[in-house]
Design a protein around this nucleic acid. Structure first.
Lengths: 145, 145
DNA sequence: CTAATTGCAAAAGCTTTGCAGCGCA
DNA sequence: TGCGCTGCAAAGCTTTTGCAATTAG
């Protein structure tokens, strides 16, 4: 279900144009993982008059409100996505930049076991796989950062 | 076994003071995970006349030569460590910054299974757990970034 | 000797902050 | 109307690059 204006208000955030637009983008993106820059450029292309600083501020607020999630991939590339019901990890194509999601209960369980074994109270984790995807249209599409 | 001068030469790198010092630091650090800044500051404290740019250059060359490994943790904190025989993942204490290593064959195997399933040729991965460790002396030691 | 390496300073990302004006509730 | 929000510009950080001087082999 999409994020509603009510959800924003509940998070103590006013319903403003930049916020609505950014949510729309994140919800509609083909692979719904976008960087701040992606969002900024797309909004400019759509004729919106928005500042990059606002994009960052809004994304940070959304993250704090639990509306979106931020991921740091390699080469310092950060992307954002709408928070999902179920947790999932990511696999990123080094060639075309495509991001796919997957869930794996076995890995999940092992992580908790490992943390417990080492005497850690687990608060979070990130698992990212990197490789080359098999899509025919993916032959160094230049998306690399 | 420690990295030798021979290893450096074999990698096409001249044996210079900064390189030796940086290797020494990485090999002797208590938890052998150091950031570029850590290394730079420590060298300065030791009275070495070295530039931060050199530290970054050397680390990058070492990484390319397969001598060290770079990890991106959350909040854009990068650390480096000597390359080990066996692959391992990391668990980081959010409070004291301690980094521990662990290996888990089950997770390892699952990762390959998942990648294959999604049609990816796996080239690398990073798994980091975050939490709070149970060491008594770890009570917000202020190391947080 | 001479190409590799270094320190310094400047530049290049990416992200955050200060501020005056604008706009949602 | 009032405080939150925004765009702009400037500043902060981490990392990289240009360059002349230095050094390993």
């Amino acid at each position: 279900m999409p994020i509603t204006n009510q959800d924003l208000r509940k998070a103590g955030l006013k319903v403003t144009l930049p916020r609505i637009k950014i949510l729309e983008l994140l919800e509609s993106a083909t692979d719904h993982h976008l960087s701040a820059e992606d969002i900024y450029k797309t909004l400019l292309e759509q004729g919106e008059d928005v500042g990059l600083a606002t994009v960052y501020r809004v994304l940070t607020q959304f993250e704090a409100a639990g509306i979106i999630e931020r991921h740091h991939f390699e080469n310092n590339h950060s992307v954002f996505e709408i928070m999902q019901e179920d947790h999932h990890d990511h696999i990123v194509c080094q060639s075309c930049g495509r991001v796919m999601e997957f869930t794996n209960p076995v890995i999940e369980a092992e992580q908790h076991r490992v943390a417990a074994e080492l005497g850690f109270e687990l608060t979070g984790h990130s698992l990212n796989l990197y490789g080359y995807c098999s899509k025919p249209e993916c032959k160094d599409s230049g998306r690399r950062k």
